[in-house]
């Protein structure tokens, strides 16, 4: 991590969904800076705007107003193709429901994403490093939930993304497996100096985070462990 280089900068980011007769304000003037290499957690109850915020940072969604700068790229105003290129080069995703391709093996699931970039990590080595060396040719249906999620993490990191976004990655796992999976994310992110943003509503997961952003009704309620701004609230 280069000292003082910020990975994510959000400036007055708001998001409003037009639901026909009703307008839902998912985010309200969010101001946030996450340093490069940080392990940040977005914490909050359902409907607090954490997934929306993660999606905007990941280039899956765009803000209604405000500015989003990730690794020096201003995401506001990017075209769909430019956003695709940004996601391909800079972002890795991990989801609660894994979203593995059921008809590809563990190795192939990772290889599929590795093939999108020029200098990926070795899928096999990476899978071996998370203890899946014996399951390389297994299909998702032949793996346990924890194993599937480990494949999903390896798949997200194989492209050497600058930013790993994980949406409730342990939401579907038991306590023991959750701890194991979180360990994998920590280790692998540290190894590649990847900035991690994890969305969760589980307070215990946040314990190991370097930065905790609490969201409530679309606004940042507090930020803990922020090295750039004093904790609020």
């Amino acid at each position: 991590m280069a000292a003082g280089s910020d990975s994510v900068q959000l400036d007055k980011v708001s998001k409003t969904y037009d639901m026909g007769q009703v307008q839902v304000r998912a985010l309200r003037d969010v101001e946030l800076t996450i340093p490069a290499g940080e392990f940040a957690v977005f914490l909050g109850p359902s409907g607090s705007g954490k997934t929306t915020l993660m999606n905007i940072i990941g280039g899956l969604d765009s803000p209604t107003s405000g500015q989003v700068i990730v690794s020096g790229h201003d995401l506001t105003g990017l075209t769909e193709d430019q956003l695709t290129e940004y996601r391909r080069a800079d972002v890795g995703f991990v989801f609660q429901f894994y979203n593995l391709v059921p008809t590809l093996t563990a190795r192939e699931n990772v290889q599929l994403i590795a093939d999108l970039v020029n200098s990926p990590q070795d899928p096999v080595e990476l899978l071996q490093s998370v203890g899946l060396g014996a399951h390389l040719e297994h299909f998702p249906s032949q793996l346990s939930g924890g194993e599937q999620q480990r494949v999903a993490i390896v798949r997200a990191l194989v492209k050497r993304p600058k930013l790993l976004l994980a949406d409730e990655p342990t939401g579907n796992l038991d306590q023991e497996t959750s701890t194991e999976v979180l360990g994998v994310i920590h280790d692998m992110a540290r190894r590649e100096n990847t900035t991690v943003i994890m969305v969760t509503h589980d307070e215990t997961i946040a314990r190991d985070a370097g930065m905790i952003v609490r969201l409530l009704s679309g606004s940042v309620a507090s930020i803990e462990g922020d090295r750039n701004s004093p904790p609020s609230g």
Binding site: D81, T84, R87, V91
Partner: peptide, 14 residues
């Protein structure tokens, strides 16, 4: 749709 969403999120082109 889940697979498509993930592949799109990972930067696979439309």
């Amino acid at each position: 749709r889940g697979q498509i969403g993930f592949l799109r999120a990972s930067g696979m082109s439309v």
